[in-house]
Design a protein around this nucleic acid. Sequence first.
DNA 1: TTCCTAAACTAAAGCGCATTAGTTCACCTC
DNA 2: GAGGTGAACTAATGCGCTTTAGTTTAGGAA
Lengths: 341, 341
Amino acid sequence: MPPRQHRPTLKDLATRLGISETAASFALNGRPGVSEQTRERVLALAEELNWAPNHAARTLSGITSMTVGFVLTRDVQEFGMESFYLRLLTGAQFVLSSRGYALLFQMTHSVDEELAVLRRWSKERRVEGVIISDLRRADPRPAFLKELGLPAVLAGGPDPKRLLPAVTVDDGVAMRLLVEHLQQTGCRRLAYVSGPAELLHVHRRIGAFRKAASGVLADPGVVHTDYSEEQGLAATRRLIEADDRPDALVFDNEVLAVAGVRALRAAGLLAEISVASCEDSAICVALQPSLTAVRRDPTVFGEAVARKLLRLVDSPDGPAARPDIEAQQPTIVVRESTPQR
Amino acid sequence: MPPRQHRPTLKDLATRLGISETAASFALNGRPGVSEQTRERVLALAEELNWAPNHAARTLSGITSMTVGFVLTRDVQEFGMESFYLRLLTGAQFVLSSRGYALLFQMTHSVDEELAVLRRWSKERRVEGVIISDLRRADPRPAFLKELGLPAVLAGGPDPKRLLPAVTVDDGVAMRLLVEHLQQTGCRRLAYVSGPAELLHVHRRIGAFRKAASGVLADPGVVHTDYSEEQGLAATRRLIEADDRPDALVFDNEVLAVAGVRALRAAGLLAEISVASCEDSAICVALQPSLTAVRRDPTVFGEAVARKLLRLVDSPDGPAARPDIEAQQPTIVVRESTPQR
DNA sequence: TTCCTAAACTAAAGCGCATTAGTTCACCTC
DNA sequence: GAGGTGAACTAATGCGCTTTAGTTTAGGAA
C-alpha cells in the first residue's frame, strides 16, 4: 500500500499561483473580492491538484460539519429480521447525501449507551443534528437532547411532552382501516399481538386499535411480546387456546405475523383465523397465505425525517421546530390471510 | 430550542486550574509530564464541566479521525428486501464502535457516484479507511483506492488483481455442500438462477457450482437476473418450460428464491422440483415450504470485515494487508424444499 | 557551595481553513 | 490636482487541540 498521499492545502494553491490564501479561499467559496480571472485560475489549479478542503479544518473554523447522526438501540439478535430500519435508513440517507450531508450511524445495546453516544457526538461537535427512534416510556432522550441544544427529530413520534419535533404516522387511520376490513370480512373477536409495552408507539397503536374496535366489536385482547419469534409463537398459542378464541389476529410487525402464522398452521387453525400485519414487507407477499398488511413506505418515512432534520438544522427555531409532520397516510393491502368469512 | 451550549475548551480547563493548556492536554491524554495531583484535578474538572475534545480540532492536529466509511451502491428499489446488508452493517458497526470508531455510511446509485464519494472522503481526510462490497467486472475501485492510498477492505472478495485485501466466503465449499445434498436427495438436473453477470461473486459462485456438479451431474443451466423479483419469476418460468426441465433450482439469494417458489407454485411444479437458496434469512424459514439454504452469518462476516479494516488502518503495511481472510465456513440448512425423491 | 538531573510545567508553533480588518491602486468627480 | 470610491488583494487572527522545544524548580551528588 503506497503511503497516503500528501494532500495539497490551500496554501499550496496560493503559493503556486502567487496569491494569498485569502484570495484562494474567496475564489473557491464563490465570495466577492477576487477578479473573475483569478477565480478561474484558482479553480483550475484546484481541479488539477485534486484539492478539496480538509474537513476537520473547515469544521474547526466554524463551518457546519455537514454531518448528522443516527443512533439505533436494538437487540442485535432480532435485528436484521425487520426490514423497517434498513428502509428508513435508505430513505434518510438519500435525502441527506443529496444535500451534501453525511450520515454517522451507530447501533447500541441500550438507551443508556445511546445517551452516551449522543452526549459524545454533541460534546465533540461531531454532528449538527440527530435522528432518534423508538421512544419509550419515561424516555430520557428528548429532555437530554433539548438540554444539549442538539437538533433532533424523532422518527415515529409524537413525543408526548412535545420536547422534540417528530415525523409521525397516523396510527388511528391505520387501525381504523384494519378493523373495518376485518369486520367487513366477517370477523368479530379481534386480538392484537404487540411489541414491548415500554415502547410508546406500541402503546399508541394498541390504543388506536382498541378505539377503532370500540362500539363495533368486543374489546380486543392484547398480548405483549419482545418482538422475537419465540414470543410471537407463544403469544399466538396462548390466544388461540383461550376459551373465547379470537377469529382474527393482528400482529404489530411482520416478524410476529410470520411466527403467528406458524403457530396457527401448527394448530390447524390457519383456515379459520384471519391474520394481518401492521408492517408490510416482501415476506408478507411471499408467505402462504400472503398476509394482509398495513402499508406505509418506510423509505418515504425516512426521507421525511431527514428533510425535517435538515430544516431544523438550518434554522433551529424556525417553523420546523414546531409541528409534527405526518409522513403519509397509511393504506391497507388486502391479501389472502383475511378472506371473506 | 435553547441555543447550542458553549462547550468548554481545553483553555477553559487550564485557565480555571491556573495551569497551561499543555499541562491539561498531557493530563487528559495520559502522558508523562504532569504530577499525579495535577492530573487528577484536570480530570475532575473535565468531568465536572462535561468536557470532551473537539473532534475537528483533534483530527486537525493529526490525530486519527476515528472514522471509517462504508459506501454501498444499490438500486433503491430492490434494497431492503435482502437482509444481508443490514446484517453486515450491524456486525461491522458493533466491532467499530467497541473500538471507538464511528461509521460514516452512504448509499449511492452507481459505481461512478461511489467513486466520487470515496474520492471526496479521502481528499477531505474524513475517514481512515473504507469498506466496499459487490466487486464488479473491471471494477475501478480497487485501483482507485490503491492510488488514493486509502486503506480499504473488500467485503466478499477476493479481488482478482489482489489490489485490495478482502474478507472472503468459500463459495467452493458452499456449492459443494449444496450440490452434494441435492444429488443425495435424488436430483439429477440442476439449474442456477443467479444475479447480474457483472458482479464477480455471481461469477465465482456459478463457477463453483458448475465445478461441484461436474463429473457427477449434467452441466447445470445458468440464468442471470438483476436480483429483482420480476426477473426471478421470469427466469424460473423459462427454466421450467424448457424441454429438459431441471429437477432442482438453486437461487442466488432469498429474494430470487421466493420469486422462484411463486413461479413453481403457479406452474403446479412445486412438489416435483427441489429449491435451495444461497442466502439464508427469516423468510426461508417462514416460507411454505421452508427453504433449504446455505447459511453464513452476515453479522459475523461484518465483524470480520471491520476487524480486518481496523488492523489495516493501524498498520497499513502490516500483515493484514496481505492474506485474504475467510470469514467462516458456510453450512447448509436442510429444510422442506429439498425432500428425498 | 556548585553543578547536574529529572520532574513539572509553559510558551509557542502548527494543523488547514475562514474571516476581519486592513492596504493598494486604478479610476472618477468636481 | 485634491479627495473620494470601489475593486482586488493581503496580513493577521482565530478555531481547539497536539506537540516540540524550552524554562523553572527541587533534590541529590560532589
